[in-house]
Amino acid sequence: MNSLIQLDLIDLGIAVGMAAIAIGLSAWQQLGLEWKLALATVRTIVQLLVVGSILQVVFTWNHPLAMAALLLVMLTIAAIVARNRMQAEIPGLLGLVWGAIGIGTAFTLLYVNTLVLRQPETWSNPQYLVPLGGMMMGNAMNAAAIAGERFVSSVKSKRLEIETHLCLGATPQQAISTYRKDAVRAGTISILNSMMVVGLVTLPGIITGQLLSGVDPLDAAAYQILIMFSIAMTNFVATIILVEGLGRRFFNASAQLQ
């Protein structure tokens, strides 16, 4: 199959023209999104070039410590973004989110590398761990933010109902069981929807990128299957851990809703 077509600076400059067209369309329709589109365009270019440069260094160095440091930085940023989206003042929330995303990602990476890839050298190869870990963290970040926000808002709005259950003898976990399940469902609905229509409505980024780079379509499809299931497991593990942790922080030692 053909190799990947290399894009030079002129090609990228022409590609930026598509963003310029979008800005022009926004101005024509008086949508008021011109500055946001312009800022988003600049940030996309800068962020991806910076990330590409960092990855080039990590891939060239090919050292486990560099790879681990990069993954930890990515995990911390994901946790901060997810925490900020929840807009909740809960003690230790950042650590809880960090742990939930980290455990979900680590558990899935362990499963993939030991049971699926079964190649010991992949643990020190950034070609596998960095892309896989990044995709898992990014999706777990969104899932955790949605689940956490749903759970916090539900408990706040249903405070009277929860206290009524407690007065009737329910345990704290029983009193918030419905809201906990709803939160996990909300956090994982996106990946479930994607799995239902993958390949029918859209071609996901991984399979598209591999096809563009000349990979055999069946091999690309196989890796996309691996990615989808990896994201699903990471999202479920991360959201369940986060919601369970949040549920324990809503009550004091006397099982009273705080």
Rank of each mutant, 00 (worst) to 15 (best):
M1Q: 12
N2E: 15
S3H: 12
Q6T: 14
L9Q: 07
I10R: 07
A15Q: 01
A15M: 11
V16A: 12
M18A: 13
G24D: 08
A27M: 11
E34W: 07
L37N: 08
A38F: 15
V42Q: 02
I54T: 13
Q56V: 00
V57N: 05
F59I: 03
T60S: 12
N62Y: 08
L65V: 11
A69G: 13
A69F: 14
I77C: 07
V81P: 01
E89S: 10
G92P: 13
L93E: 00
G95H: 04
F107S: 10
F107A: 13
T108D: 06
Y111V: 12
T114A: 07
V116S: 04
L117Y: 11
S124I: 13
N125L: 10
P126S: 06
Y128E: 00
P131Y: 05
M141L: 15
A145S: 14
A145F: 08
I146W: 02
S154D: 14
E161P: 01
H165A: 14
L166H: 02
L166C: 03
G169S: 09
T171S: 13
P172K: 04
I176F: 01
D182A: 15
A183N: 02
V184L: 03
I191C: 06
L192F: 15
M196V: 12
G209R: 04
Q210F: 02
Q210W: 06
L211M: 13
G214R: 08
P217E: 08
P217I: 10
I225Y: 12
T234C: 14
A238V: 01
I241V: 15
I241D: 00
V243F: 03
